[in-house]
Computed example of a mutant assay.
Amino acid sequence: MNSREDLKTTPVDPRFPTQNQTQHCWTRYNEWALCLKKNDDDEDVCKSARSYAKSLCPGSWIEKWDGERDEGNFSGVQK
């Protein structure tokens, strides 16, 4: 996985104009999960999507959602 030094801020997304970025975080995480699903879990192909999610979301949320995906009980995009 990327180190914190490799993270880049996600591009401006007009779907999320407010200061509260919770929905933006959720959407970016699910875009990453969807990328993995469409690309046979190829982490390299989906590296930028993961970076965008990590730049927006608290680390504890990413860890929680990663664990839920591994356990098969994530409420977003399924494996």
Rank of each mutant, 00 (worst) to 15 (best):
N2L: 15
S3Y: 10
R4D: 14
E5C: 09
E5Q: 10
E5M: 09
E5F: 14
E5K: 12
D6A: 13
D6F: 13
D6V: 06
D6P: 04
L7Y: 15
L7P: 11
K8M: 05
T9C: 10
T9Q: 15
T9Y: 11
T9W: 05
P11G: 13
P11C: 06
P11Y: 02
D13V: 11
P14H: 14
R15E: 15
F16K: 07
P17D: 10
P17W: 13
Q19G: 15
N20M: 07
N20W: 09
Q21D: 09
T22F: 12
Q23L: 12
Q23V: 11
Q23I: 12
Q23R: 08
H24C: 11
H24A: 11
H24V: 03
H24N: 12
H24Y: 14
H24E: 11
C25D: 00
T27H: 02
T27M: 03
T27D: 09
T27N: 01
T27F: 06
T27A: 07
R28W: 03
N30A: 09
E31M: 07
E31F: 04
W32Y: 13
W32F: 11
A33F: 02
A33D: 03
A33G: 05
L34V: 01
L34F: 08
L36T: 00
L36S: 05
K37T: 10
K38G: 01
K38M: 09
K38C: 04
N39W: 06
D40K: 09
D40P: 01
D41S: 06
D42W: 00
D42T: 04
E43R: 04
E43W: 04
D44H: 06
V45T: 13
V45P: 00
C46H: 04
C46E: 02
K47R: 12
K47S: 02
K47G: 00
R50H: 12
R50E: 10
S51T: 07
S51F: 05
S51P: 00
Y52Q: 11
Y52T: 02
Y52K: 02
A53Q: 07
A53V: 02
K54G: 07
K54W: 09
K54L: 10
K54Q: 15
S55P: 08
S55E: 07
S55K: 05
S55H: 06
L56S: 12
L56W: 08
L56I: 13
C57H: 04
G59M: 03
S60D: 14
I62M: 09
E63K: 15
K64P: 05
K64V: 03
W65Q: 13
D66G: 00
D66R: 06
E68G: 03
E68Q: 14
R69C: 04
D70H: 01
E71W: 02
E71S: 12
E71L: 12
E71K: 15
E71V: 01
G72C: 01
G72E: 08
G72K: 03
F74S: 10
F74I: 02
S75Y: 07
G76P: 09
G76K: 07
G76S: 09
V77P: 09
V77E: 13
V77A: 13
V77F: 10
Q78S: 12
K79M: 03
K79F: 05
K79H: 07
